[in-house]
Amino acid sequence: MLIRYLSQIGKYFLMLKEVFNKPTKWSVMKGLIFKEIDDLVIDSLGIVAFISFFVGGVVSIQTALNLTNPLIPKYLIGFATRQSVILEFAPTFISVIMAGKMGSFITSSIGTMRVTEQIDALEVMGVNSLNYLVFPKIIALLLYPFVIGIAMFLGILGGWMAGVYGGFTSSVEFIQGLQSEFIPFHIAYAFIKTIVFAMILATIPSFHGYYMKGGALEVGKASTVAFVWTSVVIILANYILTQLLLAK
């Protein structure tokens, strides 16, 4: 079992090496990158905006409902919303959701190409199929921090709207909370995590799709396995990065 996992990890790193080998012609690669930006980044904006806005609202309401002590200032609602959204919700929670959305799309599209011999066709023509298929995804997901930036903004906006229009706090208090004890490095920390998660989101589902064997049923299974492993690795990377970047 352990040997199997170690061998898979080794295979994953060998795949990464091959992704950056023998690059595809730039005129072709350019088109592939734009297509991946559309499929992976632009197509995710709707669901990210929806989830961020409402989860931000829920964080704000729950914080307000838990502040039963009258001595605790109301501006803590804004403070808690900002901290939750910037530190964890936007970078990590959204990335786990994206492991399902983008991850299953990547695994199933590459897996289907494997099953229908399209990857063999690329190889026989002399194309480095890993570079052709995975590299554009990695480059496209360099725009992933942009998605997370939108998630941060909408999460806080949702928190503000739920807090103010739900009658839990005033706009002034909420904004005071947002500005209170603001540490700029937290933003850097969130975006460093985001870049690492983007790399994980692009490569682990690709690995599961590329090396899958079997037919249509196995494509479905590979997508599920890819989602599980992408989520596990994101959570582990989140823990390690938090320990490295925030712990004193």
Binding site: M113, T116, E117, Q118, D120, A121, V124
Partner: peptide, 12 residues
């Protein structure tokens, strides 16, 4: 080399 695959293997 040109190759014709069993399932055609055209890019969808």
């Amino acid at each position: 080399i040109g190759m014709v695959f069993q399932g055609s293997a055209l890019f969808d």
